[in-house]
Design a binder for these strands. Structure first.
Lengths: 126, 126
DNA sequence: CTCGATAGTCTGCTTTTCCATATTACCTCT
DNA sequence: AGAGGTAATATGGAAAAGCAGACTATCGAG
């Protein structure tokens, strides 16, 4: 049989092979989505809205999360500039996490999506 | 060593064990996020904004997607009430996909998130 | 009768995500 | 000297997501 897949479009920054300006937008969008998906990211960000928190404080605020997951998710959020990690060279070590401006600015869009979810929750599966 | 994990909070509909009203909200939010995450969901929805499309039409509009992925993602979007699947009992079979009202109402929040991504794109990784 | 088009399903594989447990390094307190 | 708290790493495995390729059923065109 013939190969069924079509060569995927390249979505480079120079937009090589793009069919239109709306194409690159989708890619940017996907990056934003990926920055906030992850089993605990939303909860972490929502916890940090109230103010900066220490690692152990967050751990206690999110029952069920493992240390591993928490460090991983925080690292990812920091990598995407959503939270800011501040390590104080004290002993015992103290590390604080806070929302960046990007993280704070994320909240209104969270609100919008939440309103949407509220309106159509009866149709949402699982 | 002692067990380090704490018993996870239960997020049942009756909110058993909830510490506050904001808890259940996170869960609803997560459902909304999950409804739109998936490698092709955004692109599919964006394609359908212009109007209803047939299966093969979508396949051609999304180079690189496999039939399997497309059916799977469409099925999931339909399950969450974001797209509407209409099969015409003709031969050869014809199946059309269109955005539901929920899908259309999703677009403003997409816009908000996209604006956010645009503003902070330089900090977003990968 | 074979070919192509349509809209799928089924099978097996790889990659990513998620999760639990163990271990580390440092210092303070007792 | 030993326990305890803090923030991580390391390791190993299970579950979910993603992917390619083969296969199906139906009908009309040639």
């Amino acid at each position: 049989m013939e190969k069924q897949t079509i060569e995927p479009r390249t979505y480079g920054d120079e937009c090589d092979g793009c069919t239109g300006p709306e194409r690159i937008e989708v890619m940017r969008f996907q990056r934003a989505i990926r920055a906030i998906t992850g089993k605990w990211k939303i909860e972490i960000v929502c916890s940090l809205v109230a103010g900066p928190m220490r690692f152990g404080e967050l751990r206690r605020a999110l029952p069920g999360i493992t240390q591993h997951m928490l460090t991983e998710q925080l690292r990812d959020l920091a990598r995407n500039g959503i939270v800011i990690r501040t390590a104080y060279p004290e002993v015992p070590p103290r590390v604080e996490y806070a929302l960046s401006q990007a993280g704070i600015d994320l909240m209104p869009t969270f609100g919008a999506l939440h309103d949407w979810a509220l309106r159509y929750q009866n149709r949402l599966a699982d």
